[in-house]
Design a protein around this nucleic acid. Structure first.
Lengths: 359, 359
DNA sequence: CTGAAAGCGCTTACAG
DNA sequence: CTGAAAGCGCTTACAG
């Protein structure tokens, strides 16, 4: 092949490989550390030291090298670097969904913290699918990432095996592990929902329903139901399975649950929803059926995502510090000084306009 | 097991998957292609061929090697592979925000499509910050990613320079470039907002306000204002700057804009908001002030994110195929067969309950 | 202060 | 069908 060009910037051979730099042509290969070294008349070792801000060179050589780097627009190849350093400055995040505001807030916290620490984050949307999750775990492992954050989802045994096999630091957020001692970050779901229910009781409500998440969910599901029931029984109020209805934390299931609840237990005056999204679904359903919130029915949510703020009426809810949990997860994951312990974050109730006080 | 060693370096080939290299402390290293080759009694070249499903080995050697791989739990190192292949099977996505449902939907489409094509995606939350954007561009470049998707944000000149310098395929989503010929995917913002306004006019509205995005925004801002004005003038309706108010596409600005509008132009009967989030902000404000939607005021949004569906009342809005745009962006980015051209996706109006017909 | 050389874990002509 | 060897672009003892 013959190419005729009008202006050649410079040509340099590294090993048996020729880089030609021409203006207006796309055959430009990226300059390597070799190119820099050759142009500067030093060894790659010296260039490397300078790039990595180590010691062992005069101010003069430094200047010379820095100039060349500027001139030819050299950027270190992180892949080559990663191969020798065995660190990729990249972490992976597993999320069961990308659609919820919960996921967004978490991701935002994670991404922000990672960026500050000079790490990149790879997202993996598992859709709660087992096969897909394992695929992601494999890919992340092969890509030699420095750590994994797994969020919101209960760890199946196969996941735990895979995690153990890959020997990579893992932090759990909004979930925890049964067999493995993996550090987690979450709130006390049992206490939080106990308090949410108690809040309703404190406002004079005696007939309280619940829109729960998945019943089998060992974290966001079961403990929240337990807290709700305990609060009821501690206050000698009726616990009825008829008043508990099961969704999947998402908006649409909130609508469906509300319909069911309105039909099965029309007597309730208040409602605890295990996620803001489901609470908003309940709100939509109530709006459609002409049930006024909070006049006819009080609703308290869970999470305090932006959904709660944006709801009409604005939703009283249990605040989880989601963004902060994301940030903290990264810090814990990347802190090599000390072994990470688990942390239970504080929660509190945010009062807005969806709960009324009964006379 | 107890090992006490100082600086001895020994290798123990467990029959299970682990080589134990000890040097003062215990580090478990992953098996490499070398370990596989040695155990199987073949060369690394052969193992490589087998892993990559090339030709050049007997069924017998294949079986032998595959067995060893299973046995010691070998997984190829994608970093080493990337170094020689010059492909990392990773793409980067730049988003100005991670908080909106628009961003979530886009990201979901991108991630899903990428996963299907066996690519990973690194997320970069620029927060519309120039310095931060350049940092991300640098990192992505150094990490040798195979392509970049830039979303929602107008490209500053410095970005374009950086992009051009890195010689990496780029696709734009919901935005486009002024100087460079970078392929983009978007809807026709001018026509879409023309139609949204015309929809309102068709419902009998004559006094129509607008909550716009950033005025200077050359894409989601200016063209949408232009479409709104053109529809008005084509129907001989009053255009008044008093009826246009400027937000930033986010919820809170929607509230603020609505307050302003209600004060400045109380006469309007309908409102076009340049994003669903701002429309929901307007809804919240209206709710607070006792303005009934759609009875007192009709509202049409833009985007058709889940916000529109979840709103009370459900929001009539302009549908952008956001998820699909994300998917398509990845396909275009990774399609090496043909040079990607830009594509303008179809939009349409989704009728819900926030617009009433005037008698 | 500086450079030659080995090595990170792969792939790929090339030769047999 | 198979392996020796070079090389991808770096970093890091080691020696001077």
């Amino acid at each position: 092949m013959k190419i005729i060009v009008d202006r050649i910037f410079f040509i340099c051979n590294n090993q048996n490989n020729v880089n030609v730099y021409v203006k207006g042509l796309t055959i430009r290969m990226r300059p390597t550390i070799n190119d820099v070294a050759k142009q500067a008349g030093v060894s790659t070792a010296t260039v490397s030291r300078i790039i990595n801000k180590q010691t062992g060179y005069t101010a003069e050589t430094r200047q010379k090298v820095v100039n060349i780097i500027q001139e030819i627009g050299y950027k270190p190849n992180a892949i080559a670097r990663g191969l020798v350093n065995k660190r990729t400055k990249t972490i992976g995040v597993l999320l069961p969904s990308l659609s919820s505001r919960l996921a967004s807030a978490l991701l935002k916290g994670i991404e922000n913290s990672a960026h500050q620490l000079d790490y990149s984050v790879i997202i993996c949307n598992t859709e709660s699918d087992g096969k897909r999750t394992i695929e992601y775990l494999d890919v992340l492992s092969e890509k030699q990432i420095d750590g994994i954050i797994i969020t919101s989802e209960w760890l199946k045994d196969v996941y735990e095996e895979a995690i153990e096999a890959m020997k990579i630091p893992v932090i759990l957020v909004l979930t925890s592990s049964s067999h493995l001692q993996i550090p987690y970050i979450k709130v006390d779901d049992y206490r939080a929902s106990y308090q949410a229910t108690k809040y309703l009781i404190g406002r004079g409500h005696k007939e309280i329903g619940m829109i729960s998440g998945t019943k089998k969910d060992k974290l966001a599901g079961f403990p929240r139901i337990k807290g709700y029931k305990q609060a009821l029984s501690d206050n000698r109020l009726t616990i009825s399975e008829d008043r508990i209805v099961y969704g999947d934390f998402a908006y649409k299931s909130g609508i469906r649950c509300m319909e069911e609840l309105l039909e099965r237990s029309p007597g309730i005056t208040a409602l605890f929803a295990a996620s803001d999204e489901m609470a908003v679904g309940a709100l939509s359903c109530a709006y459609k059926k002409g049930v006024k919130v909070p006049d006819d029915l009080s609703i308290i949510g869970y999470d305090d995502t932006q959904d709660a703020e944006m709801a009409i009426p604005p939703l009283t809810t249990v605040h989880q510090p989601i963004y902060e949990m994301g940030e903290k997860a990264v810090e814990m994951l990347l802190n090599t000084k000390e072994a990470a312990g688990s942390v239970v974050m504080p929660h509190h109730i945010v009062e807005r306009d969806s709960v009324r006080t009964m006379e």
